[in-house]
Design a protein around this nucleic acid. Structure first.
Lengths: 200, 200
DNA sequence: GCCTATAACGAACGTTCGTACTAATATGTA
DNA sequence: TACATATTAGTACGAACGTTCGTTATAGGC
């Protein structure tokens, strides 16, 4: 009862790491088992199917994102401090490579499953909607706090913020451009400045 | 001599379409052959290896991008008109689904190969660097023409423009949000306004 | 209409895929 | 310690993978 949970977690962590490199679809049970010195059947017994493994791995990644990016940001004061923390944690999440040697698994899955119906896609879409909603909520709080102008379109700003994150991921991981992080920070400040209240 | 080229083009077009849905790595010779009513070996004979097929398919997609997005934009006048045309064509490229039923193959490959060394990645990186360079050049021309402020950081603006495109692709394809195109256009105009010369 | 280069075929290679069984082992508890 | 159960290993499966082979059909130039 206890041991199973433990190895299952071990499996999922390795699955997340491997899938970040080869994708959730490229993830194979055989290679994952050999990486963990487990038999293929022994590993498979923890999941009912490969799709279940994929869903579990994605859920693990989402949970990690929640606790690494979102949870710490919620400790910051409402408004711009929290929004800045959220963004900063997000960039650090992209930069860190201990959990995802092949880049953020969630972003990779977004492209891999944008046209592949199934349980993985459903979970992914739900997570992305929730994420965007949370970003928009943080922006709305910044408006309420008077840090951003009252006329600010929160969804539009959330959209553009997300774009900056995506571009950072692209330039950093594919092009290997170290300046991307600085560009991202500059872009955020420019976005904030553009929507700042004259009072602040 | 003639026939071979013809079927090779047919194969590549179908390969691009299929790879846009399952990825260049998920592309399999068997399924591609059956889609074209060809034998697996007959199709394989056109390429020396699967990697060659992948590289050829990517090159085909890049060539299509060049002629659909870039070439028409070059006919516009230097400066903002050309930059706007470039951006507009790019959005249309993302939106159109006749060539890529599964979304832009190039963007998909960017995520799929950001950590997968080889010929595909090399070609991809070269293409992305060239693309970004061309965007930056268009921005520089807009500065020279006096449409954008002299102090404008062309690389920074190119970075942010690319982010808007990525966010549009994400919201449109994964979340199915029809408002993403309008958001993209608004974001472009805001970016232009922020860097516009006071004279213009 | 022949002749040769090209193009496509069908079969088979060894490997790996996901999954289904059963047997053995480890674990937690009485 | 012994039992019950949860966890792993082992084996096998049909299918699909990329690739190679030898052969057949077909195309274009004389």
């Amino acid at each position: 009862m206890r041991k199973g949970e433990h190895t299952r977690t071990l499996i999922l962590n390795e699955a997340v790491a491997l899938a970040s490199q080869v994708g959730l679809e490229g993830l194979s049970i055989g290679s994952l088992a050999s990486r963990l010195d487990l038999s293929k059947s022994g590993l498979f017994a923890h999941f009912g199917s490969k799709e279940d493994l994929q869903v579990s791995a994605l859920r693990q990644a989402q949970s990690l994102f929640q606790q690494r990016v979102f949870a710490p940001a919620l400790k910051e004061a409402r408004g711009l401090p929290r929004l800045r923390a959220l963004f900063s944690n997000w960039l650090a999440w992209i930069e860190r490579s201990d959990d995802f040697p092949g880049g953020c698994l969630i972003l990779a899955a977004c492209v891999e499953y944008d046209d592949r119906p199934g349980a993985v896609r459903n979970l992914l879409v739900a997570g992305q909607r929730e994420l965007r909603g949370a970003v928009v909520k943080a922006i709305r709080l910044a408006i309420e706090e008077g840090h951003l102008a009252a006329g600010t379109d929160a969804w539009q700003l959330g959209f553009e913020l997300f774009g900056v994150v995506l571009a950072t991921h692209h330039d950093r991981r594919l092009l290997g451009d170290p300046r991307s992080l600085g560009r991202a920070r500059d872009a955020l400040e420019r976005l904030i400045d553009a929507h700042r209240t004259t009072a602040a």
